[in-house]
């Protein structure tokens, strides 16, 4: 159980200002995901919370207590690193028990805790192996197991899935979701650049950009009412379409955003039709079709069509955006009133 508060947090490396004043509250037991493009400061922010990096300015509170100058091991945290960070010369068991040996745990208790964690992650058969004898997915499980064994108040994940292949990534993602379900008292902070991971795992997402918070909210809040063009473009796949010029003028805004799944193809004689476009490319993903349409805007308009609808390149189609799902932005990239 730990409530984490960030108050006007800053981090600079020499003249480089990386974290530029972040205010955020992570509630006890919450799964918070930091997401953003590379270089946005999300990993740095996690390392500030872990204590591996010193805070330049501002306050970090755990349960109302300032922990700015508390060393990592005294913060009640456990961390899972992108590159696993296993001790290469120790067996899986020793890797998981190494941190416990210092915490004055009895041998029996230590063994129980390691075995429990191993059972949770189904790595009981691997306890005697060395990290180099494990696959990437197994190594990451051991790293997660090592964190579980510490019974932390706060669980920190630094891009734990980036080094895994696509299939394993989905499987391990599920594992982490289950972990959150099983450890409801543990606050989890998770860093990723992958918005799908963020959407699927998070209770709340914090979108970062250039060291400041763009928006904090539940996945559906971010999807349905993004607070800026940046968030609108970052959350959702395929990316939201942004139209400017005459397309936006019709809706009295500077930029009009519409997600590919919110555009319908309508008949020629439908009075609601709005845009006409030519198919220039189609991607068939099996369950969905992504159509790239030339409608006279700067970039092709992407339309997501469920099912097996086959439309040949060069075909002219009529389009109608769903009015309820339009996102209007002003010149500053903020939602237009």
């Amino acid at each position: 159980m730990a409530n984490i508060e960030l108050k006007n947090l800053h981090k600079s490396y020499g003249a480089v200002h990386v974290i530029k004043g972040i205010d955020l509250e992570i509630k006890s037991g919450e799964f918070m995901v930091f997401v953003g493009p590379s270089g946005c400061g999300k990993s740095t922010l996690l390392r500030l919370i872990s204590g591996l990096e010193a805070i330049s300015d501002g306050e970090l509170l755990f349960d109302g207590e300032v922990v700015n100058n508390v060393i990592p091991s005294k913060r009640g945290i456990a961390m899972v690193f992108q590159s696993y960070a296993l001790y290469p010369h120790m067996t899986v068991y020793d890797n998981m028990a190494f941190g416990l040996k210092l915490a004055k745990t009895t041998k029996q208790e230590m063994k129980e805790r390691v075995l429990n964690a191993a059972r949770m992650l189904q790595i009981e058969d691997l306890l005697e192996r060395l990290p180099k004898q494990l696959s990437g997915g197994q190594r990451q499980r051991v790293a997660i197991g090592r964190a579980i064994v510490r019974d932390p108040k706060v669980f920190l994940f630094d891009e734990p899935l980036s080094n895994l292949d696509a299939a394993l990534r989905v499987a391990t993602r599920l594992e982490i979701a289950k972990l959150h379900h099983d450890m409801q008292d543990t606050t989890m902070v998770y860093v990723t650049h992958d918005q799908v991971e963020a959407m699927t795992l998070a209770d709340r997402i914090c979108v970062l950009r250039d060291g400041i918070v763009e928006q904090v909210g539940t996945p559906s809040e971010l999807y349905e009412s993004p607070a800026s063009i940046f968030v609108a473009g970052f959350i959702g796949s395929p990316k939201m379409n942004f139209l400017t010029g005459k397309f936006a003028d019709e809706f009295n805004c500077d930029t009009l955003g519409i997600r590919p799944e919110h555009i319908e193809i309508v008949d020629e004689d439908n009075s609601d039709k709005l845009w006409t476009g030519k198919v220039i490319h189609a991607e068939d993903l099996g369950s969905d079709n992504y159509l790239y349409l030339e409608i006279g805007a700067d970039e092709p308009l992407v339309v997501r069509q469920a099912g097996k609808l086959k439309i040949a390149n060069g075909t002219k189609v009529n389009l109608r955006p769903q009015n309820a799902n339009l996102h209007k932005f002003n010149q500053q990239g903020k939602p237009a009133l």
Partner: peptide, 11 residues
Amino acid sequence: DVYEAAKVDGV
């Protein structure tokens, strides 16, 4: 990162 893990472990 091995050293960072040790730091978090409080070794």
